Lab assay of single mutants.
Amino acid sequence: RKEMTAACTPRRRIINLTSVLSLQEEINEQGHEVLREMLHNHSFVGCVNPQWALAQHQTKLYLLNTTKLSEELFYQILIYDFANFGVLRLSEPAPLFDLAMLALDSPESGWTEEDGPKEGLAEYIVEFLKKKAEMLADYFSLEIDEEGNLIGLPLLIDNYVPPLEGLPIFILRLATEVNWDEEKECFESLSKECAMFYSIRKQYISEESTLSGQQSEVPGSIPNSWKWTVEHIVYKALRSHILPPKHFTEDGNILQLANLPDLYKVFERC
């Protein structure tokens, strides 16, 4: 597991931080080997919608929660590849102030007048994250320049770009939802926020969305749709870069829909 690298990086740093090793061990302890084997050997059937997909393993048909699986995938990559990410360069710098204002204007932020003026909160978020810029760049390849612009994001899987519609809320939550006081809790909560931002979430995906850094293989055609990215990038990574937690067998994120021999018997009677 320590050699797990989802995106190509030129050289690998050895990380011996106790906090990170502890988080890696927790993933191992909570892992479910049968689910790992199923995901490793599954045959992708198709997307139901951005949140759900169908896959077959041996004779069984499964309904998989793409949102939760991708979130767990990105969390584990962030923990196992800690401080070893490439950088996704933004085509132009994104001012943190503008991103924070967009987030505060969104109902998702939960902002009320009692929280104070949005401009003041946005300025605080910019200054707060600028103070964390060195650590964010060093460990997470999340790059913020001296003017308070976001200029780079971590490359977690080759050819995958997170849904940038979720970027404003991500920046807001970096400042408000991460435990910045304790090292282990900081790395864990920061990785979880980043994983949620990178995950496939239906509120940020339309039929026209593209999450891939590449064009489709047909010359002159439109960019790959999110469905292509889910199948050929995300579920491909799920084959080798995730140890599913045991609770996925109990919380409805992986559901067995049918045993195909039983279905064949039904059709034979028709």
Rank of each mutant, 00 (worst) to 15 (best):
R1H: 14
K2G: 11
K2F: 14
E3K: 04
E3Y: 14
A6G: 07
A6Q: 04
A7R: 05
T9P: 04
T9Y: 06
P10F: 10
P10L: 07
P10E: 14
R11L: 12
R12A: 15
R12S: 14
R12G: 12
R12K: 09
R13L: 06
R13K: 06
I14H: 10
I14F: 08
I15P: 06
I15V: 15
I15N: 06
N16V: 06
N16G: 08
L17N: 06
S19H: 05
S19W: 03
S19I: 01
V20Y: 01
S22M: 09
S22G: 15
Q24I: 06
Q24V: 06
Q24M: 10
Q24P: 01
E25N: 07
E25T: 13
E25G: 09
E26A: 13
E26Q: 11
I27Y: 02
I27R: 04
N28D: 08
N28F: 13
E29H: 12
Q30S: 15
G31D: 13
G31Y: 12
E33A: 13
V34H: 15
L35T: 13
L35N: 06
L35H: 06
R36W: 08
E37M: 07
E37S: 11
M38A: 09
N41S: 06
F44G: 00
V45A: 05
V45H: 09
C47R: 03
V48S: 03
Q51N: 06
Q51P: 02
Q51Y: 03
W52C: 03
W52I: 14
A53G: 06
L54M: 13
H57T: 06
L61M: 06
Y62N: 02
Y62Q: 01
L64D: 00
N65H: 07
T66G: 00
T66K: 01
T67F: 03
T67N: 05
K68T: 08
K68H: 07
E71S: 07
E71R: 05
E71C: 06
E71H: 11
E72K: 04
Y75F: 10
Y75V: 02
I77K: 06
I77C: 05
F82Q: 03
A83E: 03
A83W: 04
N84P: 01
G86A: 05
G86Y: 08
G86Q: 12
G86E: 15
G86N: 15
V87C: 14
L88A: 10
R89P: 15
R89Y: 15
E92N: 07
E92C: 14
A94E: 15
A94P: 14
P95S: 10
L96S: 03
F97S: 11
D98V: 06
D98N: 13
L99N: 11
A100I: 15
A100R: 00
A100P: 02
A100Y: 02
M101P: 00
A103S: 09
A103P: 00
A103V: 03
L104M: 13
L104W: 05
D105V: 10
S106G: 15
S106H: 08
S106N: 13
S106D: 11
P107C: 10
E108Y: 12
E108W: 07
E108T: 09
S109C: 11
S109L: 11
S109R: 07
W111V: 09
W111E: 04
T112R: 09
E114S: 09
E114R: 09
E114W: 06
E114A: 06
D115N: 08
G116Y: 11
P117S: 14
E119W: 09
E119M: 07
G120Q: 11
L121M: 09
A122E: 01
A122H: 00
I125W: 10
V126P: 03
V126A: 11
E127C: 10
E127G: 09
F128Q: 07
F128V: 09
L129F: 13
L129W: 04
L129H: 02
K130L: 09
K131L: 11
E134H: 06
E134G: 11
M135Q: 04
D138I: 05
Y139T: 04
F140V: 03
F140M: 05
F140H: 02
S141P: 02
L142Q: 01
L142P: 00
L142R: 01
E143Y: 09
I144H: 00
I144Q: 03
D145H: 03
E147C: 13
G148M: 13
N149R: 07
L150G: 00
L150W: 02
G152A: 08
L153A: 01
L153I: 13
L153N: 02
L155C: 13
L155V: 14
L156K: 01
I157L: 13
D158T: 13
D158I: 13
D158N: 13
N159E: 13
Y160D: 01
V161R: 11
V161D: 06
P163W: 06
L164P: 07
G166L: 02
G166Q: 03
L167F: 00
P168R: 03
I169K: 09
F170D: 01
F170C: 02
L172I: 07
L174E: 00
A175H: 06
T176P: 03
E177F: 09
E177Y: 09
V178E: 02
V178N: 00
D181C: 09
E183F: 00
E185N: 14
C186L: 05
C186A: 05
F187I: 11
F187Q: 02
F187V: 07
F187D: 00
F187S: 00
E188T: 11
S189D: 13
L190S: 02
K192C: 06
E193Y: 04
E193L: 06
E193F: 05
C194D: 00
C194A: 14
M196N: 08
S199R: 02
I200V: 12
Q203D: 15
I205Q: 04
S206F: 12
T210W: 07
L211P: 09
S212K: 10
S212E: 15
S212D: 12
G213D: 15
G213L: 11
Q214A: 11
Q214R: 06
Q215I: 08
S216H: 09
S216G: 15
E217C: 13
V218N: 13
V218L: 13
V218R: 12
P219H: 11
P219W: 11
G220H: 14
I222W: 14
N224M: 14
N224D: 11
S225K: 12
W226R: 01
W226A: 01
K227N: 06
K227A: 05
W228N: 06
W228K: 07
T229K: 05
V230I: 09
V230A: 04
E231W: 02
H232P: 01
H232L: 02
I233D: 04
I233M: 06
V234I: 14
V234M: 05
Y235H: 03
Y235F: 07
Y235K: 00
A237R: 05
A237W: 04
L238P: 00
L238S: 03
L238I: 10
R239H: 03
R239D: 01
H241A: 08
P244C: 03
K246H: 14
H247Q: 12
H247E: 12
H247C: 13
T249S: 11
T249H: 11
E250T: 13
D251V: 05
I254Y: 03
L255S: 07
L255H: 13
L255P: 03
Q256S: 10
Q256K: 14
Q256H: 08
L260I: 15
P261V: 08
P261T: 09
V266Q: 15
V266P: 15
F267E: 15
F267D: 15
E268R: 07
C270I: 13
